[in-house]
């Protein structure tokens, strides 16, 4: 049954198999590089996420793919759909911003002092970076389109979301494609099957 495959292996030789393994590794490495590079450009730790729950229906269904960005100096606005992670709960949540409350930055005075010091040192570039930071921090309240009430009970005791909790803002949408990962999570055997088949193909295919 496996005679032909074995023959193929033998024809490859040790060197051939090693080359195939190297190809395999480089595919994985370049995938990882692209993911991290995308993360750098969009300023989020995960630029692409899969919707896992129905709390944003009928906008997003389970398995839809979302593309995120999180530009550092752009304030959030109501109606933006954010992906946020609350400390202590591992699963990120995709919900829409209902309230944006400005609060004056607590360290605003020390910042002014800091800016002055930098002027004395004649480091203009650094000063500009400090000045560009928004004066006002934002407190956010979110709600899922399909939920009757806001998310305050999901915040694990926090009263408001802050920028540091937000992974990114949804900018683009691609339906259904992410369902593969949900299926792999729901049926772990499928994951091993797919990985196994892909791995076998990568090893056997010559060129």
């Amino acid at each position: 049954m496996f005679a032909e495959e074995l023959k193929a292996f033998r024809r490859l030789g040790v060197r051939g198999i090693l080359v195939q393994l190297l190809n395999f590794a480089s595919v994985i490495a370049s995938g990882l590089m692209m993911w991290k590079g995308l993360g750098l450009v969009t300023n989020t730790e995960s630029p692409i996420v899969v919707v896992l729950s129905g709390s944003m229906e009928p906008a997003f269904y389970r398995g839809d793919l979302l593309f995120l960005t999180n530009p550092p100096n752009t304030p959030y606005r109501t109606g933006d759909i954010t992906v946020y992670k609350i400390p202590g709960s591992p699963i990120p949540i995709v919900h829409r911003i209902l309230e944006v409350r400005g609060v004056n930055r607590k360290s605003s005075k020390s910042k002014a002092a800091m800016a002055k010091e930098i002027v004395d040192d004649e480091k203009g570039a650094v000063l500009r970076a400090v000045e560009n930071e928004p004066e006002v921090e934002q407190l956010l309240l979110t709600k899922g389109d399909n939920n009757p009430v806001d998310d305050i009970d999901l915040y694990n005791g926090l009263d408001w979301l802050e920028r540091r909790h937000v992974v990114g803002k949804v900018r683009g949408f691609l339906p259904y494609v992410g369902y593969v990962t949900i299926a792999m999570n729901d049926f772990p055997k499928l994951k091993y099957l797919i990985l196994g088949v892909l791995g076998l193909f990568a090893l056997i295919q010559r060129e």
Binding site: T78, R96, E99, V100, G102, D145
Partner: peptide, 23 residues
């Protein structure tokens, strides 16, 4: 167009002088 999400928001500056947007 799959759907429109319509929202009505109030925008005001509070007693501390910072902007608030509330749907």
């Amino acid at each position: 167009t799959k759907q429109l999400f319509l929202y009505l928001q109030a925008e005001y500056v509070d007693s501390k002088g910072v902007p608030n947007d509330v749907v």
